[in-house]
Design a protein around this nucleic acid. Structure first.
Lengths: 139, 139
DNA sequence: CAGTATCCTTGCGGATACTG
DNA sequence: CAGTATCCGCAAGGATACTG
């Protein structure tokens, strides 16, 4: 596909979006932009079925609260399933759904692209932050 | 590329990420998940060079404040350039950079995919919200 | 182990009014 | 026209303590 074709496709996609679809899309992307979501999806993608504690270990720095919150959100979005094996001792396993795996696969090219363009982003931000603040007063 | 290859690639990408790169990536994606960012990028992608007021008209419902804020953020990220044509009357034009166009092109497949899987997302959320609330008390 | 319950800080998004 | 200046409500993210 050429760039023009992709651009045209984006036009078609956007124009065809209902308000609800647009909201859903933005919500999904907002969740993806949340601090831990992508890390968890990735861990489950390459690690298969994982327990709460195991995920906690892989996602260094996450608190129990945020892990639970994020997992619930992913579950609600249909990207992750929660298997409660019954208690004594508590054992809960999380796994990517097909939708979740699809999401990871769709996300990876974008991920790669951002990392490839790392320098561009960083330079732009440095330039922006170094601008004189006086004429167009900062906001 | 097969799914396994993509998955392997995602592993490679993730493993190779420094903390800073990871933060940058998350930040870029967070911005993309913001309410107006993608709409603006798309408008500039298909509409070319646009003035503040023209963008305001295309992004129905946006306030002046949020338009300016979002544009500044996109400018800082290097996705958009701001051309001030000098005042009397004020005329400022915004345009996608190559980086911004690249971003739009990278984003479109994901966009398409989410829309295609619309039903899956909606169903999952309905199922989740309809669950009995008592046993694993809602959070 | 796998959560809940509180409390707190920050920043997004919006409403409204004003200006060179 | 293209912003700024304020003020506000709300949700994200985090710290800490507690529980079946």
């Amino acid at each position: 596909m050429t760039n023009d074709e992709i651009l045209h496709q984006s036009q078609v996609v956007c124009d065809g979006l209902s308000v609800e679809e647009n909201n859903l899309w933005r919500e999904i992307l907002t969740h993806a932009g949340n601090r831990w979501s992508l890390g968890i999806i990735h861990s489950l993608g390459v690690g298969g079925k994982l327990r709460h504690a195991e995920l906690s270990r892989r996602m260094k720095g996450i608190t129990q609260r945020m892990l639970t919150r994020t997992l619930r959100q992913l579950e609600r979005d249909g990207l992750v399933t929660r298997h409660d094996m019954g208690k004594v001792p508590p054992r809960v396993e999380y796994e990517l759904t097909d939708l979740g795996m699809g999401f990871l696969l769709q996300m990876t090219p974008l991920w790669t692209w951002v990392v490839e363009n790392n320098e561009g982003f960083l330079e732009s931000r440095e330039r922006f932050d170094a601008r004189p603040v006086t004429p167009p007063k900062r906001y």
